[in-house]
Design a protein around this nucleic acid. Structure first.
Lengths: 252, 252
DNA sequence: CTGCTTCTTGCATGAACAGGCAAAACATGC
DNA sequence: GCATGTTTTGCCTGTTCATGCAAGAAGCAG
């Protein structure tokens, strides 16, 4: 049995069942589980499936899976970032918070006794804030994009234009010193730009994998970032670049 | 059974029923309750559900609060109403859906393969619809009112004014033949009136306890109701009054 | 208050895992 | 044909992960 043959059969079963078990594949192919695990590792590296304990599941057939997958990834890190980011807040401030799992974690980390005004176009962030009694929540409506978990479009832009905020928590973006803050979607970038324009300061909290990456649509230059919240393990050279552009760096 | 599989099944049931019971999941999955609780803890940490004593509920804001308090016993009735109400839909329609637990149940009851355009000012309804691939979701933003679970205010009215719908699912109101459809809050009533004005037909699904009751703020007259979805046990005298005003009565 | 259920925490066990190593199969060059 | 290098594979070793069990804490009902 050829390696490539096994890979194809694994892909086939994933397409059919949505999952595969390492042990089951091993006995079906007549090879050891180690070999199967190696196959799964390779396919996972190629992004064709997602490795889980005991086997693997289809990587991202549905949007829900994508969002769920992203949010399960690096939960610990994002919670730590969120706690550090919340430390930047003071009572009575008004905020823009846009989409992304890190921003949702930040919303969940806001203490119950903090008085804030928050405007968000992310349903996840909004949900997290509904329980907080002292938060005045303004939902920025518009066309909802499942992949992003946020509302975008002309209606959203109009709603943003009528508001101002002390801080803008800008999420789910690429971050590169030369190219600045970038987004993956045109409409999403527009909303981010509008929020940035109406905010006194921008806060970005990112995991290491977002650092030194860029996406197609430019949102703002690196010098627009006031606070940058990163993991302790973030490469210091990159951080120094951002600091020289005026960003305060906070370690989670 | 993969851990990942259980998580997905839990998410599925939450999307369908709005709640899960730890013991019931344990026996269904063939694992100990400890394992289920661990699953629930993880999903809660990722913000995908909300932990409650005995199990978990959907993290949707309003659903959690009300499922906990106001209508724990009426869940089944509302699910039945929802199924009947969904029967009034046809593919390609556009809808307004406002707030209330009954409307959230209706949103959850919409089949995955139905193509619709839905505009809502309820975060609970919006959350329930985010998973449906064929639903174009428009969020009507504005100032969020935790008690209602909906957005209201001038921004919301502006957003509503730009849209039109075939049907308007009007929720959480008092219903009386003489006083018509009434709401408990002034701003809420304004939004409902705006939605009613821009809709071709109004659908109201109510449990018996809402029948023949009235709230302070008038939304529409009884003759504006096109479809009335009620429990089988609803008092026929009251229903006859509504029918004489032009409403079609549907039993759940 | 009392008794019951549910929940969290810590722990032990077995399964699943990654990395290193060596043998076998295969290809390549002389 | 023979030697050499590469790839694939299975096995071994220590590590990580998932799970069930037990004990104590917390929540709920009467």
């Amino acid at each position: 049995m050829l390696t490539e043959e096994r890979h194809q059969l694994i892909r086939d079963q994933l397409a059919a069942d949505g999952k595969v078990l390492a042990g089951e594949l091993a006995s079906r192919f007549g090879v050891s589980e180690d070999t199967v695990r190696r196959d799964l590792r390779e396919l996972a590296k190629a992004g064709q499936l997602r490795r889980v304990y005991g086997g693997a599941v289809a990587s991202a057939p549905f949007a829900a899976a994508t969002l769920g997958q992203r949010s399960r990834h690096a939960v610990e890190e994002k919670t730590r970032l969120a706690r550090a980011a919340v430390g930047l807040l003071s009572a009575g401030q008004s905020l823009f918070i846009d989409g992304g799992t890190t921003n949702e974690a930040i919303a969940r980390a806001i203490p119950r006794d903090m008085e804030l005004t928050v405007a968000t176009n992310s349903l996840g962030v909004a949900s997290a804030l509904t329980d907080l009694p002292l938060v005045e929540l303004i939902v920025l409506g518009g066309r909802y994009v499942p992949d992003l978990g946020t509302c975008v479009g002309a209606d959203t832009l109009v709603a943003v234009a009528q508001l101002g905020a002390d801080l803008f928590f800008l999420g789910s973006c690429g971050l590169d010193v030369a190219r600045g803050v970038t987004a993956f979607d045109s409409a999403e970038a527009e909303v981010k730009r509008a929020m940035a324009k109406n905010s006194a300061g921008i806060v970005i909290a990112v995991t290491n994998d977002k650092l030194a990456t860029a996406a197609p649509y430019r949102v703002a230059g690196a010098d627009a970032i006031r606070h940058l919240v990163v993991e302790k393990t973030a490469p210091s050279a990159t951080l120094a670049d951002f600091q020289s552009r005026g960003a305060q760096v906070h370690f989670a």
